[in-house]
Amino acid sequence: QVALSRTQVCGILREELFQGDAFHQSDTHIFIIMGASGDLAKKKIYPTIWWLFRDGLLPENTFIVGYARSRLTVADIRKQSEPFFKATPEEKLKLEDFFARNSYVAGQYDDAASYQRLNSHMNALHLGSQANRLFYLALPPTVYEAVTKNIHESCMSQIGWNRIIVEKPFGRDLQSSDRLSNHISSLFREDQIYRIDHYLGKEMVQNLMVLRFANRIFGPIWNRDNIACVILTFKEPFGTEGRGGYFDEFGIIRDVMQNHLLQMLCLVAMEKPASTNSDDVRDEKVKVLKCISEVQANNVVLGQYVGNPDGEGEATKGYLDDPTVPRGSTTATFAAVVLYVENERWDGVPFILRCGKALNERKAEVRLQFHDVAGDIFHQQCKRNELVIRVQPNEAVYTKMMTKKPGMFFNPEESELDLTYGNRYKNVKLPDAYERLILDVFCGSQMHFVRSDELREAWRIFTPLLHQIELEKPKPIPYIYGSRGPTEADELMKRVGFQYEGTYKWVNPHKL
């Protein structure tokens, strides 16, 4: 086992960053958080920038500027975001240094004079007029057009580079997404736009490419001749908990499936790229999406959770019991969808996408189930092999396979070949997804960000279904809070070829 401390991990990262040409360590950078008073800024962006600063992973002359409508001070920003920093008493001095680099400007999102004030403020910072500028839009999409237009007109660096990070949702359907994309691309070049999907920053999602293309053993079996089906799962054990009003506007397909799960599907299904260059990788992902037809209604199961009468606390409440959810809402909190990649490698292999709230566990994984062994000599005792990439929690890679049961006879039983990170790298604290992705933006690497043509294809696949749901308002199937979801989803999976045995229990190697 390799035991690495946080300091050692960050030392390795620093070495990698400083050796590259793309990370300008000594240049002045300004990180501007648009929507600095909001939840995302408070819980994710400010803490992430602090962790990067604490670990010495930001360029040395980096300033952080918050911008929002609320009249706040840096002290206010500190008060609301610091509880999420997880700072230790030993880091007190470092924390003071961090907040000394912070400033805040209040202004409207659609007022040109406010942006001119913001620009004057940035120019007044040390070497601010020639600094590289990175704008993070932690804002609702309704203000994107006004904000990007004003940034472009008043706040661009004339000497350094300018980059803009856009948070999902990128529209509600193909038409609104196209409108937003066309607007942003009329102001910024594609190499300046970073559409963030934080799932692409997760260690195991990034590991998929290495697993596939750096190991000879997987190449020959990664196709329709050997793989019976692919299941991509995202499960949350909690409901909307008072935030249903926002969720109800989008629903589970827009929230998770059309982005996170579809991105994971691309990494499983794509061909080997010409290189690890950002556009070479994204070219292959677009090719996969172009091979997927629009979702067919007979390959869809929609569910909505109801309270568990035997549960406790939140578990007793259904989705419609959330006071922020519109009365009688038919918005799905669970969806199972089957897609097919219609190309030579994957023809006929079902890709089953499942996601839901208020389920029995927290889990995100990719599961490849292989065909049955031909010419069975073990009297149907063999179960199908599976390769599982567990994204969260407890990152893991393992192969479910058959071995001989101890004893006199040739009785096979299920076991696993474990390729888990935790076994080799004991207690290594890896940077989280937002840390990686923000560092990628500083480096100018777009590999783990969504390109406009990729986004367009993703919406093309799901828009007809979303429009049909909005028009017909089908009643989702009720499922109990804390269950596996509607049984109809299991029946759909069985119908397209997935075999669920229920006889195997994964042993978490992190707890051995």
Rank of each mutant, 00 (worst) to 15 (best):
R254I: 03
M257F: 09
Q258P: 06
Q263F: 00
Q263A: 00
M264S: 05
M264F: 05
M264P: 00
A269Y: 06
M270W: 02
E271I: 01
T276R: 11
T276W: 02
S278I: 00
D283L: 04
D283S: 09
E284S: 10
V286W: 07
V288Q: 05
K290M: 07
Q296R: 15
Q296G: 14
N298R: 15
N298G: 14
V301W: 01
L302K: 04
V306W: 09
N308D: 15
N308K: 15
E312H: 13
L320K: 14
D321E: 13
D321Q: 08
P323G: 12
R327K: 10
R327N: 15
G328C: 15
S329I: 00
T331M: 08
T331I: 07
T333D: 02
F334Q: 07
F334P: 05
A335W: 04
L339Y: 04
L339D: 00
Y340D: 05
Y340V: 09
V341P: 05
E342D: 15
E344T: 12
E344L: 08
G348D: 08
P350C: 01
I352D: 02
A358T: 02
L359T: 08
K363P: 03
V366S: 00
V366Y: 03
Q369R: 02
Q369M: 06
F370L: 11
F370V: 05
H371Q: 12
G375Q: 14
D376T: 08
I377K: 07
F378V: 05
Q381H: 12
C382N: 14
K383Q: 15
R384I: 02
E386D: 00
V388D: 01
V391R: 03
Q392R: 00
P393W: 00
E395M: 07
V397E: 00
Y398L: 01
T399C: 10
T399D: 00
M401I: 09
M402Q: 14
M402L: 14
M402H: 10
K405A: 15
K405Y: 11
P406N: 06
M408P: 06
F410V: 12
N411W: 06
E413W: 11
S415Y: 03
S415M: 09
T420S: 15
G422W: 09
N423R: 10
N423D: 15
R424K: 15
R424L: 00
R424N: 05
Y425I: 06
K426G: 15
N427V: 06
V428T: 08
V428M: 12
I438T: 07
I438N: 00
I438A: 04
V441I: 08
F442H: 07
C443I: 12
F449A: 08
F449M: 06
R451K: 03
L455C: 07
W459V: 01
R460Y: 05
H467D: 12
Q468E: 14
E470Q: 13
K473N: 13
P476F: 01
P476E: 04
P476W: 01
P478K: 14
G482A: 08
G482I: 03
S483C: 10
R484V: 02
T487S: 14
T487C: 13
E488Q: 10
D490K: 08
R495N: 10
G497V: 02
Y504L: 05
Y504S: 06
